[in-house]
Design a protein around this nucleic acid. Structure first.
Lengths: 250, 250
DNA sequence: ATATTTCGTGCAATATCGTGAAGAGTCAAG
DNA sequence: CTTGACTCTTCACGATATTGCACGAAATAT
């Protein structure tokens, strides 16, 4: 690839994605990071972009849809997402539930990783547009609040799929009442997926512990484990210990 | 090989590949790089191409690849989208195909309109997150290039749905070859939807007319009409008149 | 506070460039 | 047939550009 073309690509990516990440582009183009960084440095000198640590940003503010996408996932959720992504092996088939925590898993997945991602969330599917991963989208009636497919057709589609790993999203986690969520249909879909997964993990931010939502998804013992932020107190987690499930710190 | 022939070849390669790499062409033609570079130098002096280190590029950047196409919802597409949205009645069920034009329809829909939108594009579904519309998502294996579900399960889901209005997205429109698209699976899905729709309209930007893509979706007469930008020339559209379909100006 | 990532710089290896000179072929006038 | 003018090509070589690597500094993550 010619240098000029590479620079043109950088410009195009900048306006499309709203950012350039030096390392990622270097991997993608199979070049050293030095080359990419040199490009960025020189293009910055020409006033074509703004250099930042790790890559570059456009001078003009990015498109609105990117701005929306960029919504700040809290630092905690990003950490949980990275930890979860690290649990996934090449070639596996995983199911990503909807929700912002699981969207962070999608973002944390290496772009060139070979795996199959099943999801009933169009938002998550959209996140994976530029990944190499095979994406299986579960259709159905869209439940807007959580942006996931529900209903009979979703259940039917789920019944035909087995996955290695399921990352379940819930709104509440309680030692006695298990994990639960706010919508009846949504809970039914989650239960269906749970039944098809070899292992199920929940990304558990602090505010969910001790809470109960109307529709139960599963008991604590039905899960393989939780991924919890490390700053959560031990006594909060103590009441879950007897269920003998894994607590992964992130 | 004559100099003139060689230069003609260079021009042809430039428009076909969007680049000339001096060394590669020299090897291929079994000539020294000097000769190629002299050609490039002189053609650049005549304003036929742009010299760059390592070879040459066309003066006009190559066809908007997918990355760039994604980019700007041109003013034209927004107009088409608004016109299409205006055709939709309250309470109707419509199917939105993937693609940037159809995304503009979704954006142009009033937030509080009561209707049912069926789509196999997670991107379109995500656009409708804050609309009151009921959204039915068609699942399947995600074809990344266009971001739409394809495959047997998508076809099965489509077979169970009837819609009032289908907004079809294609890459090419030709009087004799009908409307066509670049992917085999994608074309099959589009045909399936067409069979379930009472009316089908295509948002037709100027560059699509007269073009032909590998996989035919339908003949012109199988459609209800086109929504075309008003600045398109009458003679361009003349060859479609005999099919007796509606041309809506936007 | 420490580990990891990213940065900038200098440097060496390689690729590409421009120039001028030399070789090869063509053609027409002598 | 020979010669000289002309064109096109290749070769040689110094100049310039590009790339990857090493290493200490700075920024960022844990």
């Amino acid at each position: 690839m010619l240098t000029t073309q590479r620079r043109a690509l950088i410009s195009a990516r900048l306006s499309r994605d709203g950012e350039i990440i030096a390392k990622r582009l270097a991997d993608e183009l199979d070049l050293s990071e030095d080359t990419i960084r040199r490009d960025l440095r020189e293009m910055a000198a020409e006033g074509l972009l703004k250099r930042v640590h790790g890559g570059a940003l456009p001078l003009v503010p990015p498109l609105p849809n990117f701005a929306a996408r960029q919504e700040i996932a809290s630092d905690v959720k990003r950490r949980l997402g990275r930890k979860a992504a690290a649990m996934i092996g090449t070639g596996q088939t995983i199911f990503l539930d909807g929700g912002t925590s699981n969207a962070e898993i999608a973002r944390a997945l290496p772009r060139d990783m070979q795996l199959t991602v099943v999801t009933h969330s169009p938002t998550i599917a959209a996140e994976l547009e530029r990944h190499d991963a095979e994406v299986i989208l579960i259709g159905g009636r869209l439940y807007k609040h959580s942006m996931v497919s529900t209903g009979a057709s979703a259940l039917a589609a789920i019944a035909g799929i087995r996955v290695d790993l399921f990352f379940l999203g819930v709104t509440a986690i309680h030692p006695a009442h298990g994990v639960s969520t706010g919508d009846f249909e949504e809970a039914a879909v989650k239960r269906a997926i749970l039944g098809q997964a070899a292992d199920t993990y929940v990304l558990a931010t602090a505010e969910k512990f001790g809470a109960v939502s109307p529709h139960r998804v599963a008991g604590i013992a039905d899960l393989s484990g939780f991924i919890v932020p490390q700053e959560i107190k031990d006594e909060t987690l103590a009441s879950y210990r007897d269920a003998d499930i894994t607590m992964i710190n992130a």
